[in-house]
């Protein structure tokens, strides 16, 4: 494992911890898209079915369990927690995420490494992860006034994607048979979705001002 991959995993973990902290500390999930969180829960469950069949390392296994556990906990909080669920911005979180699920599943049926149950689900999870942030970005843009922890959450998620791209470049240059084209192309698409957010993030950082997304 190279330093970029590790940095990517850590920023991914931090993003999830920031989100859990926000929900726990403020008892509020305002500004957070339940649609995006549900998509991530589907992504993790679909991808990490290999927990039952393949063992890579203790690190991988623990991280997979943490990701599945945290994503399910977040969805549970937003849907069922007595206090937290009342703070959910249902009216602005209207992205029709089922279309994303359907589209990604159809794509995975046709574009995959191997036509097996697990490989198709793996490709599906890669495609779905690439677009899962969309409802969150739409919600950020619509609600205008975004709290700091939500901004940090999206920032760390974006940083995770950026580090993974560096990781793939590094692996491509150093490993003779590294060719993970499905993951790399989907990863590039996913990172591109953050470009706009990052642009405004850095402007607000430079001006030492609160992040404002244009309507």
């Amino acid at each position: 494992m190279n330093i970029f991959r590790f940095a990517g995993d850590m920023t991914h973990l931090i993003s999830i911890l920031v989100l859990l902290l926000k929900i726990y500390a403020t008892k509020s999930c305002s500004g957070i898209s339940l649609k995006t969180q549900e998509l991530y829960a589907i992504v993790f469950v679909a991808r990490y079915l290999d927990l039952f069949t393949d063992f890579i390392s203790v690190y991988n296994t623990v991280m997979k369990l943490v990701f599945i556990g945290c994503s399910l906990a977040i969805v549970w909080c937003m849907r069922l927690h007595r206090v937290v669920r009342r703070t959910y911005n249902k009216d602005v979180d209207t992205f029709r995420h089922y279309f994303l699920v359907l589209g990604c599943f159809l794509l995975a049926l046709f574009v995959h490494e191997k036509f097996t149950f697990q490989e198709v689900l793996w490709a599906f999870s890669i495609y779905l992860e690439a677009v899962a942030i969309l409802p969150q970005l739409v919600l950020l843009q619509r609600s205008g006034n975004v709290d700091n922890l939500t901004v940090q959450y999206v920032f760390f998620l974006g940083a995770y994607r950026a580090f993974y791209i560096l990781n793939w470049i590094y692996r491509y240059l150093t490993e003779p048979h590294f060719g993970r084209w499905i993951a790399s192309v989907a990863g590039l698409v996913q990172t591109a979705l953050y470009a706009d957010f990052f642009y405004y993030y850095f402007i607000s950082w430079k001006n030492n001002a609160k992040l404002q997304l244009p309507a």
Binding site: D9, R47, I56, K64, F67, K114, W122, N167, H177, A183
Partner: peptide, 10 residues
């Protein structure tokens, strides 16, 4: 046909 590598990333 080459065997699919195990997915070693998260």
């Amino acid at each position: 046909e080459p065997e699919t590598e195990a997915h070693d990333e998260l």
